[in-house]
Design a protein around this nucleic acid. Structure first.
Length: 429
RNA sequence: GUGGGCGUAGCUCAGGUGGUUAGAGCGCCAGGUUGUGGCCCUGGAGGUCGCCGGUUCAAGUCCGGUCGCUCACCCCA
């Protein structure tokens, strides 16, 4: 069973009807919310030139690219993320678009890496971006879309938490502690792991890799021990660069509060994000119990469009993957019932009535209702069993006596109640 | 990429110390007289025991390799 020559490729999924229904459930929630915020849907090609990702996405992604040489000797890669494609698409037409540009997409993305829970070689990701607006209101709006997307799927602040930070604030703090500009990236890498490593190890790395002295390293690490904006303000607030970042961050949080989503948000300096192109506020959304990988991540990337040769436009956005999200919904029992169902099942008693059954089915379908019936001549008992397994809500029984009077019996399959209706009324009621 | 666990019907699993045509439940298909579903009864299909090789008179059972799944690390679309 497991290893036929036609087995699924590792890390790829099939979507039989039950799985497809869940995927559709999630996609439809994403689309409803994006449109509610005035975003338009777009898409791009799943295969792109390899160089679109090299140097722009960061080591992490490039090392896991699903890439190969095509028959035209081009170096290509299945898209690992949507943002570079978005940047390229906008590079060609952003000048003609009214700003801010609010676009969303639900691409299937790929990576070549050994799979594990919550991480396959393929997934779908809700990408939402605002391009052409540098103010924090755009940052807040984008996070609000993500959180409302989760709310739309039945998740609340007790289920998911948004952890937010700002690379400019972190950079200001690092510089205040003595990190040189060309060591900032190295310092970010240490901060990114501060939760998973011992303080001693982080301290050593800050000194060795970020070039801090012992005092500077401790000053930074102390911030993670006493998390919160107040601690930052108290210790580094007198630095102009830090104060500026704090003011911006206050406004960001106030905006989220105004949108009624403040209860989802925690300030967390350890959120850095792996992608190289982030330049400002960054965030990740996790399940509140902390059992799964990040459900969603995003932030501001003001330089990317320029990097791929477009108009220099500020931008902010996020990606939310379907794999972890669906796992979380399953864990919390928030997935909908996706068993099959049909509005009507037509039961025919006697082959003479089959033509009339076809007519009844056609008329119900013209009204937009779903109708099924046995494709072969079967005993009535058998037809009812078929109606049951189709999940029919009502069965319409075409029987000789009633049909002679242009009537039929309608049985409600949940209650078992039956009533007689005139066939002519099917077109009107 | 590194390490641990696991691979027997579509699903959940049985198959002491190697020994005749490999089993169960559920599901699926057919039937139980074309005027009524859920329960029930009967019958059936479906497995080269993940794959390859080795030991043996004999391997689902033992050994090696390999592939797949899974967990952790790495890392985090």
């Amino acid at each position: 069973m497991a290893s036929s020559d036609f087995a699924r490729l590792p890390g790829f999924r099939d979507f039989p009807p039950e799985e497809m229904a869940l995927r559709t459930h999630v996609f439809e929630a994403w689309r409803r919310v994006a449109r509610r915020y005035g975003f338009q849907e777009y898409d791009g090609p799943p295969l792109e030139a390899l160089e679109l990702y090299v140097e722009k996405s960061g080591e992490e992604i490039v090392g896991q690219l699903y890439n190969f040489t095509d028959k035209g000797h081009r170096e290509v890669a299945l898209r690992p993320e949507m943002t570079p494609s978005l940047a390229r698409i906008l590079g060609e037409r952003s000048r003609a678009l009214p700003k801010p540009i609010r676009w969303f997409s639900t691409p299937q993305l790929f990576r070549y890496e050994r799979q594990q829970r919550g991480r396959l070689r393929e997934h779908f990701q809700w990408n939402v971006d605002i391009v052409g607006e540098a103010g924090v209101a755009a940052d807040a709006e984008v996070l609000a879309v993500a959180l409302d997307g989760l709310r739309e799927l039945g998740l609340g602040p007790d289920d998911v938490r948004a952890r937010v930070s700002d690379r400019r604030l972190l950079a200001a703090l690092m510089r205040s502690a003595g990190v040189a500009d060309d060591r900032l990236t190295a310092a970010y890498a240490v901060v990114d792991k501060v939760e998973r490593e011992t303080r001693e190890r982080s301290r050593g790395r800050l000194m060795a890799e970020a070039g801090l002295d012992a005092t500077g390293a401790d000053a930074i690490l102390d911030l993670f021990d006493a998390p919160g904006l107040d601690a930052v303000r108290e210790r580094f607030g007198d630095r102009e660069e830090v104060a500026e970042a704090l003011t911006r961050f206050d406004e960001y949080l106030a905006t989220l509060e105004g949108l009624g989503l403040g209860s989802f948000v925690d300030f967390d300096l350890t959120i850095v994000r792996g992608l190289a192109y982030y330049t400002g506020i960054v965030f990740e959304v996790f399940d509140a119990r902390g059992e799964l990988r990040a459900v969603c991540g995003g932030g501001r990337y003001d330089r990317l469009l320029e990097l791929v040769g477009g108009e220099p436009l500020p931008a902010v956005g996020f990606g939310m993957g379907d794999v972890v999200l669906t796992e979380l919904l399953r864990d919390l029992d928030r997935l909908p019932d996706v068993s099959r169902s049909v509005d009507w099942f037509v039961v025919v008693i006697g082959d003479d009535l089959r033509p009339r059954a076809l007519d009844v089915a056609r008329r119900l379908r013209d009204r937009g209702e779903s109708v099924a019936y046995s494709l072969r001549s079967h005993a009535v008992r058998k037809q009812f069993k078929a109606a049951e397994s189709e999940g029919a809500r009502r069965v319409l029984v075409l029987a000789p006596d009633e049909a002679a009077r242009d009537e039929a019996v309608v049985r409600d399959m949940a209650t078992g109640e039956e009533r007689t209706v005139s066939l002519a009324s099917l077109d009107v009621d």
